[in-house]
């Protein structure tokens, strides 16, 4: 799924546009705990969309380390200027939707975006 489609589906605004708009997002992943994100996405090679309510620069750093090209902030949360600045530097597209995480995921899933199909093992 292309970034422009995602924007359309969840009626998102672009907070930071520097980045790879050609990327084809394969999976969606929603979490507010960064270590959970790191744990689950650590072996994912396909481009992932991170859906989260975390708005501080850590979310961008997490995305960078995991090669996540696009972060979608849910619940229309206000976001720190430093986060946007860092995303620009690191080439990570930042989007924001006013929908809550559950609805955001639901809309994207309905539109064909999938989650990783395997079960998590500890």
């Amino acid at each position: 799924m292309k970034v422009v489609e995602i924007i359309k589906i969840v009626d998102a605004v672009v907070l930071q546009e520097e980045g790879n708009w050609d990327v084809n997002i394969k999976y969606g992943f929603a979490a507010d705990l960064l270590s959970d994100t790191l744990f689950v996405i650590s072996r994912e090679e396909e481009p992932v969309l991170l859906i989260t309510g975390v708005t501080n620069p850590s979310v961008v750093k997490t995305a960078k380390i995991l090669d996540i090209p696009v972060v979608l902030i849910a619940r229309g949360k206000p976001i720190e200027a430093s986060t946007i600045e860092l995303a620009k530097k690191e080439n990570i597209i930042l989007l924001r939707t006013k929908y809550i995480v559950f609805v955001t995921c639901g809309l994207l899933y309905e539109a064909g975006l999938k989650g990783a199909p395997w079960k998590i093992q500890y």
Partner: peptide, 8 residues
């Protein structure tokens, strides 16, 4: 800030 999942 998004830490504290106890997963690190």
């Amino acid at each position: 800030l998004g830490f504290g999942a106890g997963m690190g």
